[in-house]
Design a protein around this nucleic acid. Structure first.
Lengths: 207, 207, 207, 207
DNA sequence: CATGAATGAGGATTCATTCAT
DNA sequence: CATGAATGAATCCTCATTCAT
């Protein structure tokens, strides 16, 4: 699974051959097929795992902050790390957006949708709780959660210029601002007081 | 190009063969290679065309509204139509997100990024103008434009549940709300007064 | 051996995997290789067993009849049962005619030929005895025995139409007629007197 | 088709690879798949062709003889040549008896059965005509035709010992005798007078 | 006596691309 | 301007067999 995750992230699904995967994993091709029913099966396994881990991290990050605005910042941050992490950590597979792997089983039966949906629900849960607590003011929680999560895909590297004028730190800040705005949380005053700075990772992010 | 666009949208890039394309177009394979350097070349041509058309529609939609908040609503609407349109209109190719076509030439050389970037710049231009006119209040225009456009991908159908609880109309409204919030435009009072309703398409969208 | 016999008869030799066999037998693959040198080795064992049993049954059936014409009828009947039995009894493997298993070791090294030959010799023995007893009149005993036994393969089911116009009973009768004719035994008069009827199985054969 | 026919006859169906076939034919593998849907498809094509040719030869041989007993001898002779011919002429494929190729589509869907049946019908037609003409005396024409044709498979080489005591000439003679007997044609006196000798091929058959 | 994880050569099939006509 | 026969490298997957436990 590790070999597959890295290779898929590097070369893409269809350019990665079973030979690549098994050679990298140091096992025979036959062994691969004792653990996965097909190349696609590996992707599904990877997606499920990544999805579970990602959702857990998002929940944990939100729970770790006591203040409702801070919860939103934390979620943005976790997403940033996830989408930025690339092959190094397991989450990279989310970058395989629908269409590529869906082929064999008709239009988009991939696990991505399910995974996507799962995260959206986690975020929806947070927003609902915040609204119930009187901390957020959101008209349409479900729709907002979907938009929220989709927007955060802006972090995935290959979507941005290599020599991008928008640095990671700026993007994180803007995303936090956007999310707070959507949640009806006062953003301007508070965030300039230091919150975003706190949330911005000190490693791997340029100022 | 029409044949390719439809087929790619239906079956995905890698599952569509040159035979499929030329058979559908009613021409020989040799002829294909007189107009496109490769299968990938067709994708690039399609992307460029779609990108140009999409950008033009976005610009036109924004220009058609005199009020700055309305411009934002209009852009959201155009994106909704674009991402929702599927195979029927040329824009569908944007749904082929990076990774699938990038294969041959190393990590992500696809034209998608460029196209994506192009649209982001168009939106960035609008935001800049709005800020300059004193209508929008945005800290980081570039980052916000990127987030803005990325969020709108929430419209693409295969990302949502088939039996999705979030209807198109709700999603459009929430997106308009989100965007207005990010632009510092008063959204709550005004939009509930009727603005989003105006923008909501009367055909193909359920209430 | 039972698992192999059934599976070979059902799915054919090459489509049956060692996994199938050992799973069906409820043992490990390792254990298989302690009893048989190879997959092919199982076939040989099966063939030898079936051949021995078949030959024994043929001999016994012939011995059980005192009259020379009746011996011929009895042999035909045993062959009918054998070739018709399918997977249920061990003889089915004979249906794997040469070519399929011969592969690995050059043209036709299969045990089938030997088995075939064995039966031919048994039949040849009967014919010789009959000729010596003055009961049969056959010019070329060896050749006739070979033809005799080969002809009886007409019983194997998959060689006949599913909705075959030729019923089992008719085929048995015709075979007995043919064999008697080849042995120079008066067939018309005698058989109509009841002999073939006696031999026809009362179960599993339609009139 | 020629390459396939020869290789299948030599090495068997499953041991013959597409590489073998295309290399022998001097074409690329891709080209193969423009003419045949699969490896199995080649077999079907071969069988149909062989079946047609064989049936034509059998009919022609029967028609060439004016006397009814001679027609039977001629058919036997054609079958002898066919089953003996091996890879050299196209008919060899009949030796691929059911079971080997049938795999993918459930028990025995191969074209062999149909081909077999076709020949049986040709022979049945001859017997019927002979009976109608008062030349043959056969109780059950269909069953006899089936037995007749099946018996003639005794000619196929790999069914016989390499150092076979039964020579080709003897086998042909015995087969003619058998067939005549089954058709109620006086065989003993006449055939020993010289008829079989006439029919025995002068080339490729040992005395 | 028994297991089953591990192997890896080998096979059928696909498909973007070329080029003689 | 157009064809489509021909290519062949590359891919996913299978399965008989081994051997450490």
């Amino acid at each position: 699974m590790a070999a597959g995750s890295e290779l898929f992230a590097t070369k893409g699904y269809s350019s990665t051959t079973l030979d690549d995967i098994t050679r990298r994993a140091g096992v025979s091709k036959g062994l691969f097929y004792q653990y996965f029913p097909s190349k696609e099966g590996l992707v599904f396994a990877l997606q499920e795992k990544a999805s579970r881990e990602f959702a857990a991290r998002v929940s944990a990050a939100a729970a770790a902050r006591a203040d409702w605005p801070g919860k939103l910042d934390a979620v943005v941050l976790v997403c940033f790390e996830h989408f930025t992490g690339g092959a190094t950590h397991g989450g990279s597979l989310f970058q395989h957006l629908p269409g590529e792997i869906a082929d064999p089983r008709g239009p988009d039966s991939s696990g991505h949708k399910a995974a996507h949906q799962h995260l959206v629900e986690v975020i929806g849960g947070l927003l609902h709780a915040g609204v119930a607590a009187g901390a957020y003011r959101i008209d349409d929680v479900e729709a907002t959660a979907l938009l929220f999560f989709t927007a955060l895909h802006a972090f995935v590297r290959p979507l941005r210029h290599d020599d991008d004028s928008v640095s990671d730190a700026r993007l994180v800040r803007a995303a936090q601002h956007l999310v707070r705005g959507a949640a009806g949380v006062s953003s301007a005053g508070v965030s300039s007081a230091g919150v975003p700075e706190v949330g911005v990772p000190t490693v791997g992010v340029d100022r």
